[in-house]
Design a protein around this nucleic acid. Structure first.
Length: 137
DNA sequence: GCCAACGTTGGC
DNA sequence: GCCAACGTTGGC
């Protein structure tokens, strides 16, 4: 069981839209970065991922579950990139903001802070637990 | 294969 | 709207 974090601009694809898809989920497409791609390939069905809103909100709003492992991204004409399917699992009672993550010394090593442009990132188990606690789940 | 120029992301 | 970080492109 591994943990991840995916980012999306809510104006493009928001948590509420993800929730509206229900149990059948939605393909997480459009990732055009090789580091992010490698992380998606490493995802296993049943893994969990934080859902982070970039630009607007700048906070972790919910937890999604990987329901389909990496397959070719249908929106990528070059055929080089992959996507996974995610479904909304649960919403954090309290969103964990970027400010809150930065204020917590135990989270200083998070990829979210170190590689702010990376749209799919791994999360350490203890980071995961702490953020869940901060988020009230 | 190096590196400058350029584009994109995302925080501020 | 600005700019830092970083990926990509293209000339050499």
């Amino acid at each position: 069981m591994a943990y991840w974090l995916v980012k999306s601009e809510p104006s493009v694809w928001s948590w509420d839209q993800q929730v509206a898809k229900g149990a059948k989920g939605e393909a997480w497409t459009g990732v055009r970065n090789h580091s992010a791609k490698l992380h998606m390939i490493a995802m296993k069905k049943g893994d969990s991922a934080f859902f982070y809103h970039s630009n607007e909100g700048k906070e972790i709003v919910g937890i999604a579950e990987i329901i389909r492992e990496a397959y070719p991204d249908p929106t990528d004409e070059s055929g080089k990139f992959v996507c996974v399917d995610l479904k909304a699992d649960k919403k954090l009672k309290t969103p964990v903001t970027l400010v809150a993550v930065k204020a917590e010394p135990k989270l200083a090593e998070m990829a979210l802070l170190k590689y702010s442009r990376l749209s799919v990132q791994p999360v350490m188990a203890d980071e995961w637990k702490l953020i869940c606690k901060m988020g009230g789940v």
